[in-house]
Amino acid sequence: MTEILVLVDHVDGAVRKPAYELLAIAKRLGSPSAVFIGTADQVGAAAESLTKFGADKVYVVDDAAVKGYLVAPKAEVLAQLAQKAGAGAVLITSSAEGKEVAGRLAIKLQSGVITDAVDVQAGPVTTQSVFAGNYTVQAKVTKGTPIITVKPNAAAPEETAGAGAREDFVPTISDSARKARIVASQPRVASGRPELTEAAIVVSGGRGTGGNFEPVEQFADSLGAAVGASRAAVDSGWVPHAYQVGQTGKTVSPQLYVAAGISGAIQHRAGMQTSKTIVAVNKDEEAPLFELVDLGIVGDLHAVLPAATEAIVARKG
């Protein structure tokens, strides 16, 4: 069966959930081959969990010649592996870096690239959400090896073990791929909350918080949710940019999205419009976001959220 390459997204060997989702999608298209770029001491545990979630093959690439440089070396690794394996498709997580790797790979392999798929079925035929979520587009690659970046939550991970054959691969990294150096790296401080793009529930705050995110955070914690924000809140310096939901931040598609004090500019809607259930709390009954909601509360978030938090905590008792 044709190998489908999956670039494994991981942090120091800890495989991130979207990689398992890609393996589930790869199974629909052929035989999943995970591509793990990391250090030798990380491989064991990672290969085991990748196999558990369906990898028939795990390519292990020592990252000595790759780490410390931005994007380009990873594209070279994938290009060489795709050619060697005669891959049927290459799947990559739709992050900023993932999309850049895909873009460079497309030129190397002279192949078409599709980004931000929210679904991939046999063919492969992809589904994307465009124009701020107002349109759904189905597309396919018509030349070369399909290269597809897939958004988190596009599929459920499947715990069906694959063959898990390990194969070391030594890539040839060119000098020109090592011109953009990672001079320093500061890991993001863990918030203890779910990852924004992966969370089942997201609670976001906007201008209406007036800079006080406590009601938003406490309500989020009562639901086990991730915390997001509008651009207005980020630009005001109230929360880090990593919280931003919208066109220039994260696109989320959770089961439940709660927007507190967010009016709902098109740029924000672009990042959350495809959420399954939407709730908004806003003092302004004219807020455009109320057009999208399943439930809208016209009221002050500083009163509504703490009272709701208290009731939820009491219920959980």
Binding site: A106, Q110, S111, G112, V113, I114, V125, S129, G133, N134, Y135, T136, V137, Q138, A139, K140, V141, T142, K143, G144, Q273, I278, E285, F290, E291, L292, V293, D294, L295, G296, I297, V298, G299, D300, A303, V304
Partner: peptide, 22 residues
């Protein structure tokens, strides 16, 4: 183009939800 759009579909408008005044 090395990719082709097979189909485009306008997303159905969300049906108006319940609005409650606090």
């Amino acid at each position: 183009a090395w990719t082709a759009v097979v189909e485009t579909t306008a997303r159905p408008a969300r049906t108006a939800g319940e609005i409650v005044t606090d």
